[in-house]
Amino acid sequence: MQYERTTEKDSKYNNLEKMSVSELLTNINNEDKTVPLAVERALPQIEILTQQIITKLSTGGRLFYMGAGTSGRLGVVDASECPPTFGVSYDKVIGLIAGGDTAIRKAVEFSEDSTTQGWEDLKANNISNKDAVVGIAASGTTPYVIAALEKCNENNIITGCITCNAGSPLATTAQFPVEVIVGSEFVTGSSRMKAGTAQKLVLNMLSTATMIQLGHVKGNKMVDMQLSNDKLVDRGIRMIMDALPISKDEASALLKEHKNVRKAIESYGR
Rank of each mutant, 00 (worst) to 15 (best):
E4A: 13
K9N: 15
K12E: 15
L16C: 14
E23T: 04
T26W: 00
N29V: 01
E31Y: 01
D32E: 09
V35K: 01
E40L: 13
Q52D: 01
I54K: 00
L57R: 02
G61A: 08
L63E: 04
Y65W: 04
A68M: 08
S71D: 11
L74F: 09
E81T: 12
V88S: 01
Y90A: 09
K92F: 08
G99Y: 04
A103C: 06
I104Q: 04
R105E: 10
E112A: 05
Q117C: 03
D121R: 04
D131I: 00
V133F: 00
A138M: 02
A147T: 04
L149E: 07
E150W: 06
K151Y: 04
E154D: 13
G160R: 04
C161F: 09
C164G: 11
A166D: 13
G167L: 10
S168I: 11
L170C: 11
A171T: 13
A171Q: 10
A174Q: 13
Q175N: 14
F176E: 14
V178Q: 12
I181F: 13
G183M: 12
F186V: 15
F186G: 06
S191L: 07
S191V: 15
Q199K: 12
L201N: 06
V202E: 05
S207T: 11
T210G: 01
M211H: 03
I212Y: 00
I212T: 02
I212G: 00
Q213A: 08
L214E: 00
K218F: 03
K218I: 03
V223G: 06
M225F: 09
M225T: 05
I237T: 10
R238P: 04
M239P: 13
M239R: 11
I246D: 11
D249M: 12
E250L: 07
S252L: 14
L255Y: 07
E257I: 13
K259R: 15
R270C: 12
